[in-house]
Simulated scan of single mutants.
Amino acid sequence: MDLSELRQEYAGQPLDVDSVDPNPFQQFTAWFDQASTAELLEPNAMVLATVDANGRPSQRTVLLKYFDESGFVFFTNYGSRKAQQIAANAHVSLLFQWLPLHRQVEVEGVATKVSSAESLKYFLKRPRESQLGAWVSRQSEVVSHRQLLEAKLQEMKARFGKGEIPLPSFWGGYRIAPTRLEFWQGGPGRLHDRIEFRSDGRGGWDRNRLAP
Rank of each mutant, 00 (worst) to 15 (best):
M1F: 09
D2W: 13
E5M: 07
R7V: 12
E9V: 06
D16C: 12
D16I: 03
D16S: 15
D16H: 14
V17W: 04
V17N: 12
V20W: 00
V20Y: 00
D21F: 09
T29L: 15
W31P: 03
A35H: 06
A35N: 09
A35I: 05
T37C: 11
A38N: 03
L40K: 01
L40V: 04
E42P: 04
V47E: 08
N54M: 08
G55N: 01
R56E: 02
S58A: 14
L63T: 10
L63E: 08
L64V: 04
F67R: 07
F67N: 11
D68P: 03
G71R: 01
F74P: 01
T76Q: 06
I86Y: 00
V92G: 04
S93P: 11
S93N: 12
F96D: 03
W98Y: 10
H102L: 11
V105L: 13
A111T: 02
T112W: 06
V114F: 06
A117E: 13
S119A: 15
L120H: 10
L120D: 15
F123T: 01
F123E: 01
L124K: 15
E129A: 14
A134Q: 02
Q139A: 07
E141Y: 08
S144E: 15
L149D: 09
L153W: 07
Q154L: 15
E155L: 13
A158I: 11
G161I: 06
G163W: 04
P166A: 11
S169V: 15
S169D: 15
S169L: 09
G172P: 00
T179G: 09
L191I: 11
R194A: 06
I195W: 00
G201C: 15
W205C: 11
W205F: 07
R209M: 10
R209S: 09
